[in-house]
Write a protein that binds this DNA or RNA. Structure first.
Lengths: 323, 323
DNA sequence: TTGTACGCGTTATCAT
DNA sequence: ATGATAACGCGTACAA
């Protein structure tokens, strides 16, 4: 690895001059510029990012903190973020927190010492006081954390309401809710919508709580279906649970959508892999990631912007699992 | 952000002493050590990773180069790598190449200037000459690149053979192959096995090439099934295509596994989400990632180790999509 | 237009 | 046992 010093020597100039042509700053004679360029080429010189970071107190790197990349919701989100950051010269570092606050705090601590320039955070546990000490822009993704922290979210409550309305329109009256974990903000919003909806429409409230996983979705649907015999629709807290419900129905010999309608939430790719294909409230996952990255980029360029709160809309995608 | 200098001042010692207690190196009196620790605590001092990297020419960071995180094969792999690297103090940077050699070379170039300590690579295009200039340990994952580059792979050829043998055992005789893209090493190996197998057993060769995607799997199965009427089994190049085949069968009213057996390859989670659940040649995805990370770690600790080539075994997981 | 010299925050060597 | 200082590679005042 050649250094700027060697390039300077090779070109017969000083390091300052090399730095100038490197960064197009200050005056430099065309001839010397060419000589420097030639030296750079010959020595295959590549500026040292670490040294540059030390001086600039900035690493052209952002952190992306998510619960777990193996959750099918996140790969697309991650891709979106990288797809917008990379062309702008930023590297993205991914962190899996497993929703463990200790891990999250560890990561955050590491970031500042690495001159990470900004962070995108998906977390149910992180609060203002944890993020406040960070001197870099932060974007909260998927979950709103605090009014003082910019965020990109979707309208979980309203969308859930719409999903439920659709089920009623299609003639469902005994609608059960397969709820996600209570500590997850998005699932509690969806649950809240379900409760309000059933109350408003005078429908029976049938709730079964589980975790955001396939097995859980299946097992809990089994329980649900034995506990409440007359269920004619299931509104699941997310797609993975909904697919679990589909599996349970298949196992119990219940025909979907004829005897039972199943509605998911998220719009992950899995939903198109199953038969019948899953009807779902589709989040614009890729756009959410894009938007968050763009907001971060804006704050990177012009620091001190007031916290913006963007709310995207989920959209009902009717496929085959509902009447 | 406090610096080591400020800590030294605060504790009334020199930076050298602070550095000593920080790194447990050299002698330092117990009293002064305590004073330093106290200063560190009071100033909330956090050593600057960038400055440290500059001096050490090492960033405690590794690169993980994969085609695309949205391919369901990779999230688990990525998790595995991070799960072993992080506790050892290493940060993992993920790069999505989209199998584009230019992107790959760009990433590689960026790595050296960042003092990245090692790389794990999943690529069909990268060759010895691209990796050779790297001065850090490299592990090739999933695809063998060169004898001189350590690798972790699975026995694609033999496993495919076993999968096909299983189908024959179950009475299938008209076995078609839904092949993955020709430029992907793993799929050409699986294709090769299919060809050898049919020849060995005197079976008709029925091949349809597609891409590693759901739609492609479905469409190509449709074509396959119209072109060759009597097909009684499909051996797919990967699980996603196999699931596409399942969808095609459902659409055509063909009952799986009664009229048609479907065999996948990979063992991604999706395979358990569909009905019938997918029979597949299951790769130990997580272990592959683990093993690669461990190999890298070993080479990080003791450089200059000769290239090791580990080959893991895929295992037949019989579920419901085969007779 | 170009060069000198210092600072970014650490670690390691060499004195003391 | 502790301190001063050079070095890591780069960018930028300031001087020339």
């Amino acid at each position: 690895m050649a250094t700027i010093k060697q390039v300077a020597q090779h070109a017969g100039v000083s390091v300052a001059t090399v730095s100038r042509v490197l960064n197009d700053k200050g005056y430099v004679h065309e001839d010397t510029r060419k000589a420097v360029l030639k030296a750079i080429e010959e020595l295959q010189y590549n500026p040292n990012s670490v040294a540059r970071s030390l001086f600039k107190k900035s690493s052209n790197t952002i952190g992306l903190l998510i619960p777990d990349i193996t959750n099918p919701f996140f790969p697309q989100l991650v891709r979106a973020v990288e797809d917008v950051m990379y062309p702008k010269g930023y590297t993205t570092i991914l962190f899996n927190s497993d929703e463990n606050i200790q891990h999250e705090l560890d990561y955050l601590k590491g970031m500042t010492s690495k001159y990470i320039d900004g962070v995108i955070v998906v977390s149910n546990t992180l609060k203002w006081e944890h993020l406040e000490p960070l001197t870099v822009p932060v974007i909260a993704l998927d979950r709103h954390i605090d009014d003082r922290i910019a965020s990109v979210t979707i309208d979980n409550y309203e969308s859930s309401f719409k999903a439920l309305e659709f089920l009623v329109e299609r003639g469902c009256r005994k609608i059960a809710h397969l709820a996600g974990p209570a500590h997850v903000f998005t699932s509690s919003e969806r649950l809240r919508a379900y409760k309000d909806f059933t109350q408003k429409h005078g429908l029976e409230e049938m709730i079964q709580e589980g975790s955001y996983e396939l097995q859980s979705g299946m097992l809990n649907t089994m329980q649900l279906l034995t506990k409440y015999q007359q269920v004619d629709a299931i509104f699941a807290g997310n797609d993975v649970m909904a697919i679990g419900a589909l599996k349970a129905a298949a196992k119990l010999g219940i025909s979907v959508p004829k005897e039972l309608s199943v509605m998911g939430f998220d719009g992950v790719e899995w939903g198109t892999a199953v038969t019948p294909e899953l009807t779902t409230m589709q989040q614009p996952i890729y756009q959410i990631g894009q938007k968050a990255a763009e907001m971060l980029l804006k704050r990177l360029e012009t620091p001190g912007l007031s916290p913006e709160h963007v709310r995207l809309n989920a959209e009902l995608t009717v496929r085959q699992s509902t009447k």
